[in-house]
């Protein structure tokens, strides 16, 4: 195995703990934040101020609720995109995920799942932690490749994601068409569902194990109580993740586009005129 394993062995403890830490900070924290942002596509509807910047005509056309949802979401995305040192944050995140994923695969390969013989709940969670890790790799890769790197050949739509038209372009990337959903869209949506569910599970269960790894929870009752907290957090995140998906699935792309255009007009940013998307070829 040569130098790699030599390096690994010398710094084993540090690497282990960095792996654990990286799962929480920055990856876990980012995930929570990301899901918060995304879920505004659903929960934005309670944000009554979100439609302030949308023209009354547009509201009439798309409806108050859509205006609020898209408005809030676009507002959040714009906020993130205007953050200082964005590149730095992004790079840290990518490096962390790569580090966590590579080591994660290495660690996952040291174990051999045996839930067939020992079908205990904890053991299932152990195996799922590994499985969801693998799923997360593919999922994150797809997610980033199609949306960030513009590899639209893997996407059901040709249109690359744009942060200025965040809701509409993402909805397209998910469904492949402005209204309804096609075969490719179903596949991608399902993949998103699985991927995001896996990631949330992985984080919630990871927080539970991390507390043992670091020695924060020792007694069985402490582990159990912390388990409730993690389960609660996981349930909350799951709710966010699923509601975002539903939010995007139930979005009319052309309506969203109209809202986005109004938002940018109000904001004073120039946006390339994008045509309404043609009705999908059924």
């Amino acid at each position: 195995m040569g130098n790699d394993s030599g390096f690994m062995n010398r710094h084993y403890f540090l690497l282990r703990r960095l792996h654990s830490l990286s799962g929480i900070l920055p990856i876990g924290v980012f995930l929570i934040n990301h899901l918060l942002t995304n879920s505004t596509i659903a929960w934005g509807l309670v944000n009554s101020r979100a439609s302030e910047n949308v023209a009354p005509g547009t509201i009439e056309q798309v409806g108050e609720m859509t205006a609020r949802r898209v408005g809030t979401f676009q507002h959040e995305v714009t906020f993130i995109n205007e953050m200082p040192f964005l590149v730095l944050i992004e790079v840290t995140l990518w490096v962390s995920i790569a580090f966590h994923a590579i080591l994660g695969v290495y660690f996952a390969r040291t174990g051999k799942s045996n839930t067939a013989r020992y079908a205990y709940q904890d053991n299932w969670r152990y195996s799922l932690q590994r499985l969801t890790g693998y799923i997360a790799i593919f999922y994150i890769f797809y997610h980033v490749a199609t949306l960030r790197w513009g590899w639209t050949f893997m996407s059901p739509t040709d249109e690359p994601w744009s942060h200025s038209q965040a809701a509409s372009t993402f909805s397209l990337a998910l469904r492949g068409q402005a209204q309804g959903i096609g075969f490719g869209g179903i596949l991608v949506s399902l993949f998103y569902f699985v991927g995001v569910t896996a990631s949330v599970y992985h984080l919630a269960n990871g927080l539970w194990t991390a507390a043992i790894t670091w020695g924060l929870t020792i007694s069985e009752s402490a582990q159990r109580r912390w388990g409730y907290v993690c389960a609660g957090l996981g349930a909350g995140l799951m709710l966010m993740a699923w509601s975002s998906l539903i939010g995007f699935l139930l979005l009319d792309v052309n309506h969203a586009r109209a809202v986005e255009a109004d938002m940018h007009a109000a904001h004073g940013t120039h946006v390339e005129t994008t045509l309404p998307v043609a009705e999908a070829d059924h």
């Binding site: 084993y12 174990g111 045996n114 020992y118 904890d122 790894t213």
Partner: peptide, 10 residues
């Protein structure tokens, strides 16, 4: 060492 435990708790 203890780091290699995956907390399966079997």
């Amino acid at each position: 060492g203890v780091g290699d435990c995956g907390n399966a708790q079997n």
